Simulated assay, not measured.
Amino acid sequence: MLNFYAIRSDLTGSQHIHPTMASDGVWTASLAALQPGTWRLFTQFTPDTGSGKGQDFVLSRTVTVPGPVTPVALPRPQAPRRSTAMS
C-alpha cells in the first residue's frame, strides 16, 4: 500500500489519498487541486519485493503552488494538558 499526503505549510489544507498501482507498475490517484501556497508532499510505502522488501520508506518534497496567497499564522504552541484521573 502507498499513502500520499499533501499538507499546506500554514496547516489550512491537507489531503491523504491511497494511489493505486496498475499492472504495468504505474501509480495513479485523484488529487484535488491544491490552493496557492507552500505545500509539503509526502509518500509512505513498504515494498513487497526487492532489496527494500519489508522496510518502511518516507519520501517528501516541498512545492509552491503559484497564485495569490493570504498567509494564516499558526497558533502559538501550548503546554500539553494534564489529564485528571478519576478514582
Results as ranks from 00 to 15, higher is better:
79 A>C: 11
78 Q>M: 14
38 T>P: 00
38 T>E: 10
55 Q>D: 02
85 A>M: 11
39 W>H: 10
31 L>K: 08
11 L>K: 15
11 L>T: 12
27 W>R: 09
87 S>W: 02
40 R>L: 08
33 A>T: 15
3 N>R: 06
80 P>C: 05
56 D>K: 09
73 A>G: 03
29 A>D: 03
52 G>S: 13
5 Y>C: 04
53 K>H: 07
81 R>F: 10
26 V>W: 00
25 G>Q: 05
19 P>N: 08
36 P>G: 09
2 L>I: 07
45 F>Y: 15
59 L>G: 02
32 A>N: 12
60 S>K: 02
64 T>C: 03
26 V>M: 05
65 V>S: 00
18 H>S: 03
15 Q>V: 13
59 L>I: 14
34 L>E: 06
82 R>C: 02
81 R>Q: 12
36 P>Y: 12
80 P>S: 05
85 A>F: 04
43 T>F: 09
58 V>M: 05
64 T>L: 06
44 Q>G: 12
40 R>M: 11
4 F>G: 03
50 G>I: 10
49 T>C: 04
81 R>N: 06
72 V>T: 11
32 A>W: 04
75 P>N: 09
41 L>T: 05
13 G>T: 03
45 F>G: 08
83 S>C: 01
12 T>S: 15
76 R>L: 09
68 P>V: 00
23 S>D: 10
81 R>H: 08
9 S>W: 00
71 P>R: 01
79 A>V: 13
2 L>A: 04
11 L>R: 14
55 Q>T: 06
25 G>N: 02
66 P>R: 12
52 G>F: 10
46 T>N: 11
12 T>L: 01
24 D>A: 11
80 P>M: 07
11 L>M: 12
19 P>W: 01
39 W>T: 08
8 R>E: 01
71 P>K: 02
7 I>L: 07
87 S>D: 06
24 D>L: 10
22 A>S: 14
32 A>R: 15
18 H>D: 03
7 I>G: 00
40 R>T: 12
29 A>E: 02
13 G>C: 04
6 A>W: 05
27 W>A: 14
73 A>S: 10
72 V>A: 08
45 F>L: 14
82 R>Q: 15
56 D>Y: 03
46 T>E: 13
49 T>W: 07
50 G>N: 01
1 M>N: 13
40 R>F: 13
70 T>D: 07
19 P>K: 11
51 S>D: 04
